[in-house]
Structures are given as structure tokens and as C-alpha cells.
Amino acid sequence: MRKEKEEALRILEALSAVDEELLARCEEQPEKKVIPLWKRGRLWAACLGLLAVGALSWNALRFAGVSKDSLYEATQDENAAIDQIALQTAPTERADGAGLTGAAQETGADTGEAEDAAPEEAGEAVTEGKEDLSVQSDQQERCGIDAQGREVTEEEVRNWMPLGARIPKNLPSGYVFESARIDEQERQATVCWSRGMDSIRITVSQVEEAAVDTVDIDKPETYDERLYEIPFAETVPAEYFEVFQDPVFDINDMTGDMGSVGLELVKSRVLPHEDAGDTDTPRGMFSVLYPDGSDSVLLRFNGRGTPEEIWNMIYSMVR
């Protein structure tokens, strides 16, 4: 094989280790249907035509002294006709006014090899609004993935006792509520907040204390990501790997020494990962047990923020 192709193969193979979140994003990207201008035009023409017919009919009926009942029937017929035409034409219409630049996207670049900025930028203008929607949808899907139960408001999830009381209130600055779900059967609630491309997902579950193994905080080799290199599957000893992937800290251990222990534990799990790009916020995952016999609560954190922000969010609930 040619040398350059061998080297290209190295790149291709190295892509197997791409971050899961990037793969998941391209897996979940909704299909973007470009509605050609001619289809949009047909829809508008149909609507205008119906409005014109409706207006003429209304005037004709009014002047002919038609009764209210027959007028109602006529209106129903018109509504049915409008529904029928809507079904036959474009299925969706973007609310971002993309139609104005739809023609620009239609022209596009003629050759794939040309560094032709104008059509690409026009195309980008068309898709910009769609990407905003896609980002929102992506964030919601990221929050909702694997989450069970029915969707609820923030107020509802916080009032769902007793688990609602364990949902943190002091979110890192800039985070806003995104979505929440309650699963009564599993006795679990999941809440998601976002801050641009950053997100935080908290799941609180009712558990039996004896069924949860918390880590021994004096054994950092079982949970501290700073001790190992990525890929963890190859560097973390097999006997610790299961715990390492999903460590559970006891809140009583974390609150030791005026909370400084907790901060260190969070620092061991929330790391920058040296990701440059649209967000360089540290990210991580861990769980916290609030032991109380059969009414214990397990809080699982998965998201982005500085360790100080994350710990402050959790510690503020127990201070």
C-alpha cells in the first residue's frame, strides 16, 4: 500500500477512539429536510387561493341572507379543504424565515473542490436558524436520553417529594432549566439544565442504603481519574474498573473538613480533558449517596462545570 495511504489508515483507525458524545451527536442529528422554494410557493398559493375563495363565499352568503347553520356548514367544508391541501403540500414550515434565502441554498457551489465562500455562507445562513433548533433539540435529546418517565416542569419535579428536595438549587451561573422527567415506578427523577453547549443532568433515585456500595475515599485508585490516562479501559486495573466507571460517594464523607474533602473528590472526577473547541468546560460523572436506610437517595451527576461550581451546587444542599 502506498505510504500516504498507510498513514491515512492510521488516522482512520485513530478515529475509533473518537469521543462518544461526538458520535452520539452525529447519530442523533435530526434529518434536515430542505423544502424547495417551489414547494413553499405552492403552499402559499394554495392558502391564498383558499382565502380568496373564502372571502368571496362569505360576501356572497352574507348578501344572499344565508342562515347561520348553513354558514357554519360552509365554514366546516372550507376547513376540511384547507386540511386536505396542507396534507398534500410541504409537511413542515420553518418558523425562522429560511425561505428568503432558500434560493441561495439552491444555487450552492458547482464544484466540491472550490474554496467558494459566498454560496457556502448563504447556505450557512439558511441552516443557521435550523442549527439553533437542532442544538435545542440536541440538548433536549441529550437530557432525555435514557431518562424514563413522564415529562414535567421544573416546579413539578421540585415538588415531587421526597426526591424533589434533593435536586440542587444553586446551579452554576448561567445554567437554565431545560427539561425534567419523573418515573414514579422506578422512584426516580431526572432534571437537565443547559448553558450554551454545556449541560448538567441530575438523576435522583430512592434506593436502599444497603444495596449501594460507596467508595472508600482513602483509596483514590478506585475513583480518581487524575491517576490514569485515557483510555481508562486500558489503564485502570480490572479489579477497580467497574467502580471507577461509576463511583458513589457518601455525602457524609464528602462534607468532612468543612467541605474541602468533597471539593477534592469532585476534582478527581470533573476534569478539563484538554478539549479545545466550542466549550472547554471541565466535565465528569459521579454519584452521591444520602444514606437514610430504605429512604436513601442516590444523586447522579453528569455534566460540565468547574469542580468548585459543581461542589458548591451539591454542598449548598447540606450546609
Binding site: 485513530a14 478515529l15 461526538l22 484538554e274
Partner: peptide, 20 residues
């Protein structure tokens, strides 16, 4: 290999979502 993987991830994170 590990360094190349790390760099590729770093690169991919610099890209706009669509291009990535």
C-alpha cells in the same frame, strides 16, 4: 496511537457541529 487519538478528538471538538 494514543496521542493521535487525543489530538483527533481535540481537533474534532474545534469544529462546528455540522462539519464535525
Amino acid at each position: 496511537a494514543a496521542e493521535l487519538e487525543r489530538l483527533l478528538n481535540e481537533f474534532l471538538h474545534t469544529l462546528p457541529a455540522r462539519d464535525c
